[in-house]
Simulated scan of single mutants.
Amino acid sequence: MSEQYHSKVDENVAKFGFHITYVMEDENGPSFCYSTGLYKSYNIPEVFLSGLPQSLSFTLVTDYANKFKETVLETNKKINSFSEDFDFPVYFIEVEKENLKDYDYASQRFYGNGNYKCVQLIYPDTNNKFPNEPDYLYDQEILGKLMQ
Results as ranks from 00 to 15, higher is better:
residue 105 Y to N: 13
residue 65 A to T: 05
residue 31 S to Y: 01
residue 118 C to L: 04
residue 118 C to A: 09
residue 64 Y to R: 14
residue 122 I to T: 08
residue 89 P to Q: 04
residue 129 K to I: 13
residue 112 G to S: 15
residue 127 N to Q: 11
residue 89 P to L: 04
residue 34 Y to A: 13
residue 63 D to R: 03
residue 28 N to S: 15
residue 99 N to M: 11
residue 97 K to G: 15
residue 139 D to K: 14
residue 132 N to H: 11
residue 125 D to K: 00
residue 33 C to N: 10
residue 99 N to F: 11
residue 89 P to I: 11
residue 112 G to K: 00
residue 48 F to M: 02
residue 140 Q to K: 04
residue 129 K to H: 05
residue 40 K to V: 07
residue 75 T to D: 00
residue 99 N to H: 13
residue 83 S to R: 07
residue 70 E to H: 10
residue 96 E to H: 09
residue 38 L to Q: 01
residue 94 E to N: 09
residue 24 M to H: 14
residue 46 E to F: 14
residue 36 T to L: 10
residue 92 F to V: 05
residue 84 E to M: 08
residue 60 L to P: 03
residue 98 E to M: 13
residue 141 E to V: 12
residue 134 P to H: 02
residue 70 E to Q: 07
residue 90 V to W: 01
residue 44 I to R: 02
residue 136 Y to I: 05
residue 82 F to S: 06
residue 48 F to K: 04
residue 101 K to W: 10
residue 29 G to R: 04
residue 40 K to C: 05
residue 108 Q to W: 15
residue 67 K to T: 14
residue 123 Y to H: 04
residue 105 Y to W: 11
residue 82 F to W: 14
residue 87 D to I: 12
residue 137 L to K: 10
residue 103 Y to S: 02
residue 106 A to E: 15
residue 126 T to A: 12
residue 51 G to Q: 01
residue 81 S to N: 09
residue 61 V to T: 04
residue 105 Y to V: 11
residue 76 N to M: 01
residue 109 R to E: 09
residue 121 L to V: 00
residue 39 Y to G: 03
residue 89 P to Y: 08
residue 86 F to D: 01
residue 66 N to H: 11
residue 47 V to L: 02
residue 53 P to C: 09
residue 106 A to V: 08
residue 49 L to V: 08
residue 134 P to R: 08
residue 34 Y to M: 04
residue 139 D to E: 11
residue 71 T to I: 07
residue 79 I to T: 07
residue 118 C to H: 03
residue 105 Y to Q: 06
residue 101 K to A: 15
residue 55 S to L: 06
residue 67 K to V: 12
residue 99 N to K: 13
residue 129 K to N: 13
residue 51 G to D: 06
residue 35 S to I: 10
residue 140 Q to C: 12
residue 71 T to K: 01
residue 123 Y to A: 01
residue 40 K to P: 07
residue 106 A to K: 10
residue 44 I to L: 04
residue 30 P to D: 03
residue 47 V to M: 03
residue 49 L to W: 02
residue 29 G to C: 01
residue 139 D to A: 01
residue 121 L to Y: 02
residue 127 N to S: 07
residue 126 T to V: 09
residue 95 V to W: 04
residue 81 S to T: 11
residue 44 I to G: 00
residue 100 L to R: 03
residue 36 T to E: 14
residue 108 Q to C: 14
residue 92 F to E: 01
residue 130 F to N: 01
residue 106 A to P: 10
residue 136 Y to D: 10
residue 83 S to H: 10
residue 59 T to S: 05
residue 119 V to I: 06
residue 30 P to Q: 03
residue 50 S to I: 05
residue 131 P to T: 08
residue 104 D to C: 13
residue 60 L to V: 00
residue 69 K to P: 00
residue 25 E to L: 06
residue 81 S to K: 06
residue 105 Y to A: 10
residue 39 Y to I: 08
residue 85 D to V: 07
residue 140 Q to H: 09
residue 138 Y to F: 15
residue 42 Y to G: 13
residue 55 S to A: 14
residue 87 D to C: 10
residue 114 G to Y: 08
residue 84 E to Y: 12
residue 86 F to M: 02
residue 24 M to W: 11
residue 73 L to R: 01
residue 25 E to C: 10
residue 43 N to M: 15
residue 25 E to K: 15
residue 68 F to P: 07
residue 136 Y to E: 00
residue 143 L to D: 03
residue 84 E to H: 14
residue 80 N to P: 05
residue 94 E to W: 10
residue 69 K to W: 04
residue 71 T to C: 09
residue 46 E to I: 15
residue 36 T to D: 06
residue 23 V to M: 07
residue 135 D to P: 02
residue 77 K to W: 04
residue 91 Y to W: 09
